[in-house]
Design a protein around this nucleic acid. Structure first.
Lengths: 130, 130
DNA sequence: ATGCCTGCAAAGCCTTTGCATCTGC
DNA sequence: GCAGATGCAAAGGCTTTGCAGGCAT
């Protein structure tokens, strides 16, 4: 493990990310963090998101759309993505999933599986219905 | 529906994609197609992949890694992605999945769900074990 | 004091797009 | 013949990175 330092930038990025439920993109988080650190750079945001992901303090949602999104809530839960606007929501349910031990795939060792839900968020439903 | 034309380029892209099981990226497909159409452009490959995806003739794997990958096999099946190299394999199994009717998510209408498996492919397992 | 971290800017990578030309239908 | 498609090259969007100076430990 490489040594890391808790800089003001890193602390605030983590704090802001934990305070929102929007699963922001790096750029959205950059905008939010600049309200408190107006001179922070986008590169610093990206670098810290990498470090915080590697340390397990946050989640990087690689499969939640085109751009990566980040989640400050690392408790086990699923995500749902709006097909219209890309917004991501949380889904704190459990349900039966296939037993990985029983899954055989040619040429692969199976290690895990990910479930992503899709749908339409309230905001877009209203817009579409009009 | 917009009118489309079956050009030589489109036909060969589709033929090549259907002939491989590698779930190539646009660039990998471009390389393969150039063996038969040396003067095709990468832009044409992208444009045709868009059109073929929209028409349902191929699948675009949006959640199978950083780059998008494409699949000429549109029969129902799952995918597994190698955590090491990003290769994608097929998984023709069925298993119980949560009933979408029963899933309630705040602020969302649930429409679908996607399952992606992850693991390590033979090629990388050999490399990692050494 | 050390070396990790920052801001800035440039570069990288993948994908899309404008334009003149070409070609299925 | 005409609208859709192509090749080429430039531009776009997101992310990473080189560098000189700054700061946590």
């Amino acid at each position: 493990m490489v040594q890391t330092r808790m800089t003001k930038q890193r602390a605030i990025i983590l704090e802001v990310l934990r305070s929102v439920k929007t699963h922001p993109t790096a750029d959205e988080l950059y905008t939010l963090v600049r309200e408190r650190l107006p001179r922070i750079s986008l590169g610093t945001v990206y670098r810290n998101l990498d470090i915080l992901t590697a340390s397990g303090d946050i989640l990087r949602l690689d499969r939640a759309g085109e751009q990566k999104r980040f989640d400050g809530d690392i408790s086990p839960h699923y995500h749902i993505r709006c097909d219209e606007c890309g917004r991501v929501g949380d889904l704190f349910m459990t349900f039966p999933l296939p037993d990985l031990e029983k899954i055989q795939v040619e040429n692969f060792d199976v290690h895990g599986l990910e479930v992503i839900f899709s749908g339409v968020c309230d905001h877009c439903r209203r817009r579409v219905e009009q």
